[in-house]
């Protein structure tokens, strides 16, 4: 098994854990955590393909990931703000109950 395979296995494992968490939890914060895990699995893929891929360029993968991390930080802030807003509205953060947008 090459290092690339190993990294991809780890990242798919991370992705599955994140997906399971995001699907199975009803607490919105934990769903957000699951989504972050999935995001980081994708980041790990970027790094793995950059590092072990056919033609390693100086810093492509790294820059990609740095941007993704910065965006994720902003996303976490927005997500948490949304959760607080939801909490103020319905006095809990159960995702199932936040369904007023149904058609």
């Amino acid at each position: 098994m090459t290092p690339l395979h190993l990294c991809l296995l780890i990242s798919s494992g991370l992705f599955c854990i994140g997906l399971t968490g995001a699907l199975a939890r009803s607490n919105t914060i934990l769903v957000l955590l699951g989504i972050e895990l999935m995001l980081n699995a994708a980041n790990l893929n970027f790094i793995a393909f950059w590092r072990f891929g056919p033609a390693p360029s100086p810093a492509n993968g790294m820059i990609f990931v740095l941007f993704a991390i910065a965006v994720a930080a902003a996303e976490a802030a927005v997500g948490l703000a949304l959760i607080i807003a939801v909490y103020r509205h319905q006095k809990n953060i159960r995702l199932q109950e936040a369904n007023t947008l149904r058609g």
């Binding site: 699907l23 199932q96 936040a98 369904n99 947008l101 149904r102 058609g103």
Partner: peptide, 15 residues
């Protein structure tokens, strides 16, 4: 009919 798919449940969409 299509609106029925729009359940408003984030989990459903995610699934």
């Amino acid at each position: 009919r299509y609106a029925q798919a729009q359940t408003g449940e984030a989990h459903g969409y995610l699934r």
